[in-house]
């Protein structure tokens, strides 16, 4: 018979696991690896969630450096090559009085990736080290970061449009630079990092901490 879940208690406490695919819950045993309803893989928490998140965050952290140092596009004009980094692109937008666009590009290509990395590292650290920072606030930050993350693809789309418009050989052409690939890696790995992070871990880590504190009190 199927165990009935009690509302107000965590699934972990009741030894129940929810299927991420079909949303049905089932009993959590060591030997059940498949959801009985939809036969997809099931586990109590996302597998190796924190480890995967850390690995991807470190990748992003490494690649964000070349993404900002090296030129993201090259402009070939009358046989002369003009490299453009993310930052110099924004400066030139500002110089030609396009403040709105400069702001969009600045937010999408500098603020969002950096903010996302900082926020995800903060949340991952707080889970790892059992910090006592409001779990709800952490989730709020995570949800915001998760939502805003996709907008950093904007820069890549703009590059692809520019490359196809400026295609006049040696007279006037635009080519993507090394930073474009690095930036892609940053965006993709932060997207995957947010995806592989199991938000329930935020609560798990704080509960563990509470239990430990109680144990210590008993021991004292």
């Amino acid at each position: 018979m199927k165990k009935v879940a009690i509302a107000g208690k965590t699934g972990k406490e009741q030894a129940l696991q929810v299927c991420s695919v079909c949303g049905n819950y089932s009993e959590h045993n060591m030997d059940t690896t498949q959801c009985p309803v939809c036969h997809q893989k099931i586990s109590l928490r996302k597998k190796d969630s924190l480890q995967k998140t850390w690995a991807l965050l470190i990748t992003a952290l490494i690649f964000i450096i070349p993404a900002n140092i090296y030129p993201i596009t090259y402009l070939l004009k009358n046989n002369t090559l003009y490299p453009d980094t993310i930052f110099s692109g924004i400066i030139s937008l500002l110089e030609s009085d396009m403040f709105g666009i400069a702001l969009i590009v600045f937010v999408a290509s500098i603020v969002v990736p950096v903010l996302k990395l900082v926020a995800l590292i903060f949340i991952a650290l707080s889970v790892q080290l059992h910090w006592k920072f409001s779990a709800k606030k952490q989730l709020l930050i995570f949800t915001f970061v998760d939502w805003v993350g996709r907008w950093s693809i904007l820069d890549l789309f703009i590059i692809s449009i520019m490359v196809s418009v400026f295609d006049k050989g040696h007279l006037l052409s635009v080519y993507p630079g090394v930073a474009a690939s690095s930036f892609t890696i940053v965006v993709i790995s932060t997207l995957f990092a947010a995806n592989s992070f199991d938000t329930r871990l935020i609560w798990d880590s704080q509960e563990n901490q509470n239990n430990k504190l109680q144990d210590n009190e008993y021991n004292d």
């Binding site: 890549l156 196809s164 993507p176 892609t184």
Partner: peptide, 22 residues
């Protein structure tokens, strides 16, 4: 003229990863 697929295809040699993601 430019269309969506053409823009991405033109980068396939110089930056395959970017082109693929786009």
């Amino acid at each position: 003229e430019t269309n969506l697929l053409q823009g991405a295809m033109m980068m396939i040699d110089s930056a395959p990863l970017v082109s693929f993601v786009v």
